[in-house]
Amino acid sequence: MAMSSTILHGNILTPDGWYLGDLRVEKGRIAEITGEPVDPTSNELPRLVPGFIDLHVHGGGGADAMEGYDAVATLARTHVRFGTTSLLATTMTAEESQVREVLAEIARYIDHQPTLVAQGLATRVLGVHLEGPYINPGKLGAQPAHAQVATIEKLDALLEIVAMPLITLAPEVAGHQQVIRHLADRGVRVQIGHTLGSYEDGVAALEHGACGFAHLFNAMSGLHHRKPGMVGAALAHAEYAELIPDLLHVHPGAIRAALRSIPKLYAVTDSTAAAGMPDGDYKLGEQNVTKCLGGVRLADGTLAGSTLTMDQALRNLVRIGLTLEEASHRLSRYPAEFLGRDDIGRLACGARADVVTLDVELNLTAVHVDGCQVSGESHVAHA
């Protein structure tokens, strides 16, 4: 259990910049931050950054979210080891009956997770990211061939089963613009993905209430100077979009172009059961996938999610030129803001004490969820 009062010391990344001092935790929340402004590169003390928030994660530790309760428990235990303190369990395209069954299993896990989080055993599952089945059958990527047309009635029924902060769909499918408007009115974040839609389709979706783009550049119509496609709509108009920074899904040059265009571009792993596991064969929904050469692929070579973990995503962003502060925002602050959450994704008084501790080479040395240490060295004094 989290101790009643815990102090973490080091270079602390706050919403107002870096401070060298102490972060005091009481009852799972940040009670106080004291210290002086600092350039963290001036010393070798630990770097304390907000816990990572992964809004697109299918699996980890050999388990796939579509396998239900036990699998979600496994992926939650796996990803917390790599600094993820909140995540959305992400589904795959499947028959409607299977989607319903999986959502009910995830809801059951969420009901039981507070004890696991409080004991430092798992990351916090915020709810579901429904990726499919309401996508374009011509742009499945690694999704199984069970694409369907969404209706307001179908989505309302699914929303009754489990908390679902995020839904990905293809806006060009007949009727989907109206569905987007309805979901936005209900407070659901809708993002565009697995789409063959045009630039105009993307702009119209944003006007109807869509607010993001799934794994930018991947599984969407690309940019051409006379046919800008869905990528063009994102680069020209988006405030938020998710991107997989494993340096395999997207070239570093394309990442940098997106960083200049989309103010709150944020990182996701799109990780599969293969994350945190050795090379070999795994499941992604009903698909068989193979982990090898640093990636995960279908038998035909199609990229099928990733093996990325959020700590490596942070290091990759720094490697291509971002500062640690900039990279942290894209793993914590912006995904929290995208969900409209101010209790996570930031180290500030009153926020949840979700803290990742890094050494000078950005290796992860400790993770705290609600102030409870779950891995690594503590760098902690107890008050």
Rank of each mutant, 00 (worst) to 15 (best):
A2E: 06
M3K: 07
T6Y: 01
L8S: 03
L8K: 12
I12T: 08
P15E: 11
D16Y: 12
G17V: 07
L20D: 08
L23F: 10
G28E: 00
T34R: 15
T34W: 11
P37E: 11
P37M: 07
T41A: 10
E44D: 10
L48Q: 02
L55P: 00
G60F: 06
A63L: 03
D64A: 02
D64K: 03
M66W: 02
E67K: 11
D70M: 12
A71E: 00
T74V: 14
T74H: 01
A76K: 04
A76M: 09
T78P: 12
L87I: 01
L88R: 02
L88D: 02
L88Y: 03
A104R: 15
A104M: 14
A104K: 15
I106K: 07
R108T: 12
I110A: 01
R124A: 06
P137H: 12
A145C: 10
H146Y: 11
Q148L: 09
I152V: 15
L166E: 01
T168G: 04
E172Q: 08
A174Q: 11
R186D: 07
R186N: 03
G187W: 14
I192S: 02
H194K: 07
S198F: 09
D201A: 15
A205L: 06
A210C: 12
G212P: 00
F213Q: 02
A219S: 10
S221K: 15
H225W: 04
K227E: 04
P228H: 06
A236F: 14
A238S: 01
I244S: 10
H251F: 02
H251V: 01
P252F: 07
D270S: 05
S271E: 03
G276Y: 14
M277L: 14
M277E: 08
D279I: 14
Y282D: 06
K283S: 02
L284R: 00
G285I: 00
G285K: 06
G295N: 09
D300R: 13
Q312R: 14
R319W: 05
R319E: 07
G321L: 04
E326L: 06
S328Y: 01
Y334R: 05
L339G: 09
D343Q: 10
I344P: 08
A348D: 08
E361A: 12
L364S: 13
C372H: 12
V380S: 02
